[in-house]
Nucleic acid binder design. Sequence first.
RNA 1: GCGAGAGUGGCGGAAUUGGCAGACGCGCUGGAUUUAGGUUCCAGUGGUUAACACCGUGGGGGUUCGAGUCCCCCCUCUCGUACCA
Length: 863
Amino acid sequence: MSENHTPYKPAMIEPKWQDYWRVNKTFKAIDCDYSRPKLYVLDMFPYPSGDGLHVGHPEGYTATDIWCRYKRMRGYNVLHTMGWDAFGLPAEQYAVKTGTHPAETTAKNVKVFRKQLESFGFSYDWDREINTTDPKYYKWTQWIFSKLYEKGLAYESEQPVNWCPELGTVLANEEVINGHSEVGNYPVIRKPMRQWVLKITEYAERLLAGIDELDWPEGTKEMQKNWIGKSSGAEVFFAVQGSKERIKVYTTRPDTLFGATYMVLAPEHPLVEQLCSAERKAAVQAYQKAAAAKSELDRSELNKEKSGEFIGAYAINPVNEELIPIWISDYVLISYGSGAIMAVPAHDSRDFEFASKFNLPVKCILRPSQEDCQAAGLQLAEVLAGKACWEGEGSLFNSANAEISINGLPVQEGKKKISDWLESKGIGKASVNYKLRDWLFSRQRYWGEPFPLVHHEDGSVSLVPEEELPVLLPELEDYKPTADGEPPLARAKHWLQYKDPKTGRSGLRETNTMPQWAGSCWYYLRYLDPHNEEQAWDLEKEKYWMPVDLYVGGSEHAVLHLLYSRFWHMVLYDLGYVSHPEPWKRLIHQGMILGISYKDKRGVLVANDMVEQREGKYYHIESGEELTMLPAKMSKSLKNVVNPDEIIKRYGADAFRLYEMFMGPLTEVKPWNTDGVEGVYRFLHKAWKMIVDTQSGALAAEISEQAPTPEAERLLHQTIKKLSEDIESLSYNTAISQLMIYVNETSRSAQRNLEHMKCFVLLLSPLAPHMAEELWQRLGGQDSLAYEPWPEYDAAKLKVAELEILVQINGKPRGRIMLPAEATRDEMITLAQQNPGIAELLEGKQILKSVAVPGRLVNIVVK
RNA sequence: GCGAGAGUGGCGGAAUUGGCAGACGCGCUGGAUUUAGGUUCCAGUGGUUAACACCGUGGGGGUUCGAGUCCCCCCUCUCGUACCA
């Protein structure tokens, strides 16, 4: 390869520097280097799919890469890593279809991904690359599970789960969207099965409390809080007429206890069978059966119409001894609270709806104010008559018995008083509940981590001893789950048999595997010490690098991955394996990059290959209908997916990086427009030409060591200041804009100072590292510029003697005058009023007031 | 329904946090170079107007010498969530 490629040719420059960085291990992170401040910058690692990278992946990766490169120049010891979240369904489904072992598919895809990521010039320490499917990695995933198990945080449970017949597996609640699987969009039904479950609920309060300390997007914090869903209220015991059983209900409105007119149990409630009267048995059982068979989708479709059955039994309201009928309905969920509610139709809209449908009594015991009522568009009389539901504030009435009265109290005080009374009587107490459920942690799949567990003949379960880890995945011929939900590992007859080497006790291995979240729950810890065969990570290294200073990834993981990981981390903290309770100090979500798409008049999206452009307008290729352009999520079906490889081939990685960052703020959704790449590509050409003589390949003739003009100095120092501030705050779009201004201005100038050019190259280097390295070398740099000190700006050089100041009269721009930069407010006003043009406009007017803002404007208020 | 975020030229987006709205880029218009296309370079580009000028940051009020920015009401869009008692 010749060195005389004088015009800017990214295809020549970029591989050269990528090789240089790899060979010289330029971005190796040094463990426990206490001479420098550490910085751990983490990207959410990808699932290596067969489709390769799309333009969304490199968005976050470029953002962190720029930050890392900048911080290295600022003297930080930066840990920046990449790996593969490679267990998961697509490889397994491919295996089912073709018989190719998922490990083979995974290895192939990882190779493609890695090659693609390298082509962007990301400054990862590739020696720390990890892969969750590597036995050397999942050995430690199993080890962490063992710790959870030992701590009593893992248990088996027979419970209705989300069973997806199409995928042949159970899914977590979080993986089910509108009754369909998140992966593949197949219907999901409820089915009781034996499952491993992790007791994340034990950590609910701490997971909730920890959120406030985090420097995360408010929306994400809010979502986690909602997911945990803490509520406080009271649990109340209701006796049952003619039975010894008591039914526990949970309510957030104990103040409305006197308004309870019936009770509802979840169809799965264990007392239903026992309490149900003989004559209601048939109807009740039919309803239970129907509810159980309903998929999540059916249940949500039934949202509009309440359903239920009376079970022929009555509960006794403990505050007034009234008999209230007991119903079952699927609007009460077995998995929340106690699976039973007291229904107060007058003050709960769901109960009101149910009561209306089944003609149950509505008893109002809370009087809203006239104004509140009007604001809500209701008639007070209707509320009081039980013809309308009131859920807001008000004053309690009809709420007293011989021992207690909460009449006249507002809601909050009523709650407190009645809860205390219930507790004193031993029939209830104030109580807290969480929406968060325990985490369903097993899957009936092949391509996941095996559990380090053995089931013995006596029904007991034990951990596989640590020295036997990892429990390797067995080789199989057939990766398909069986129709009844038996996991594929059950087919590995030989593997299945386990004999304890010490006790000689035999048993069968657990055949479920862990969900994909397992590997990603702790990967950031393995990067700290990826080759350690003795421990998951070294404690000193953990203490040095953790916590992660900046974590960047998609908001789709706002609750799942980010909550599960926090849970594991907190457990590891309790066990003394990590030094901080929270893994990620600061979190940022990159916005989604949308593709260009088209819609017809009905709003239906049309695939891009069905669109033709004529005279700046768009038409359907077949119908001829005119279409409008709009941004839409990239998808194969719309044929609007942009392949980064093609962009890099045409414009180079530097232009690609620059464009993605120039599009707009990192966190916003942005539409991709390939024309826009031209703009940054032109900028790179201009920058190249500013420094290199494209005829000879030598430095541009305008470059010399001659002293720069004050204007050139000012522009440079402005640029340094802007770049420093903008990169620090990840505002790369405005940083790039400033570099463009610098190049546009300087290219016009016949004199360019050599040191200025070097400085410019350093400023450019985090954003467009390949070109910067090449120019640095041509400007006389010996090694990589990756660790050159970041330029500092000189505030004195930003100053000017005279400034153009706007003069306004009554807030309207009326003139511009030159004033000394350090003029005081009074001087500014005087000089402005004396200015001939302004004085003319002020003639005959009375000056009421003058305002001066140094460096900006003078506003004269006249009458 | 609830929660969060956002509405600025033809388009992506700037605006030192109350101080010249539209930086920078795309696109478009005109010109130069070129046999031509492309590239490159120069000039222009929010709207109305011949011009002076006026109007302009989703809509309506308000605070202020001054509002894209602050306050109140309304509208629209995006994302998340959904019978959690």
